Simulated assay, not measured.
Amino acid sequence: MKIIKHPHLTSLALLLFAALNSNLANAKSLRVASWNTEHLAAHNGAGCKARDTESYTQMRQYAQSLDADIIALQEVGSLAAVERVFPASQWQIIMSSRTDSPSYTCRENKLASTQQKVAFVVKKSILIKGVNHLTEFADAKVGAREAIHLQIDHEGKNINLLNVHLKSGCFVENYKTSTKSSCVVFKQQAEYLQTYLYKQNLAKDYWLVLGDFNHHLAKEENRFRQDLLSLSTSQQNLNIATDNLQSCHPKYPDPIDHMVLSKPLEQALTPSSVHFHHYDSPLMLSDHCALTGQFNL
């Protein structure tokens, strides 16, 4: 049988093949974000970052622009607060199990503070396989945040995500030698995180630890960075994806929001996808910008 080759048909076939490959690649990618929403409250005019309706509208638009499949949130007051930005019709919401802690008077506006908890929002299409609330992080001090370990299935692979919000105020090179009260709490949380990760198979499994570390992990001399990277001396099992990045806050260029990856997940990471998403308005919607990373599994 004689096969007739037509140049236009050949070009069309190549375009269709490229489009198919692109769609397959997009289907396998997983886009993850971390965002400290700064005292996100359920009601207008409440808490240390009192917002109005327009502010919540802008936060919803910003969240949509991230185009993320999963977002680790910090400083959310309640399920109702999360739903103001991430509608339950579109997202699975996993809230911290920590009981409410006593409120305090906000420095700026003298209002009563809302709760500061961590949460995950996950697209409805993603299968959640397990949730582990790490209450030990909250045991360090009244009001301290617990962490959430989320397990999902993506393209038949088991992905572990750990959302943390560690104690603020311990901005030192060596947290182990500091006598600051904030560092005493931070040390307990840091040691528990290392213990928890040490029990995992970081050499083979997909692990992503993300959130507000309240620490300058991107600095080579940082002791906590060194401790995390030396969890296994036989292999480089962890990698800090936020090296060489600057935060979006004009006063604090050194980032404290980070993504820490196990080796298998690092190999799936698109390096150029790791960045902070600046706000369009000079009036920041939160004192943290969202951090994203995309993984092609």
Score class of each variant (00 low, 15 high):
6 H>M: 05
11 S>P: 00
11 S>N: 11
18 A>E: 06
19 A>F: 13
20 L>R: 06
32 V>K: 02
35 W>Y: 14
37 T>H: 00
42 A>Q: 12
43 H>R: 13
47 G>A: 03
49 K>Y: 11
50 A>H: 06
52 D>F: 06
53 T>R: 10
63 A>N: 03
73 L>D: 03
81 A>Q: 03
83 E>T: 15
86 F>K: 00
90 Q>A: 13
91 W>T: 05
94 I>F: 06
95 M>I: 03
96 S>L: 08
104 Y>C: 02
106 C>K: 12
110 K>F: 13
113 S>A: 10
118 V>H: 06
118 V>I: 07
118 V>A: 10
123 K>W: 02
123 K>M: 08
123 K>F: 03
124 K>C: 01
128 I>P: 09
128 I>Y: 09
128 I>D: 08
131 V>T: 11
131 V>L: 10
133 H>Y: 15
139 D>C: 04
140 A>Y: 08
146 E>M: 10
152 I>W: 03
158 N>M: 09
163 N>E: 02
168 S>D: 07
169 G>C: 13
171 F>E: 12
177 T>W: 10
181 S>W: 05
184 V>R: 09
185 V>M: 07
188 Q>E: 15
190 A>M: 00
196 Y>W: 14
199 K>Q: 15
204 K>H: 14
211 G>D: 01
214 N>D: 06
216 H>E: 15
218 A>R: 09
225 R>E: 03
225 R>L: 03
226 Q>P: 06
228 L>Y: 06
228 L>Q: 08
236 Q>T: 13
243 D>A: 11
250 P>F: 14
256 I>R: 07
264 P>Y: 09
264 P>D: 09
269 L>K: 06
290 A>L: 06
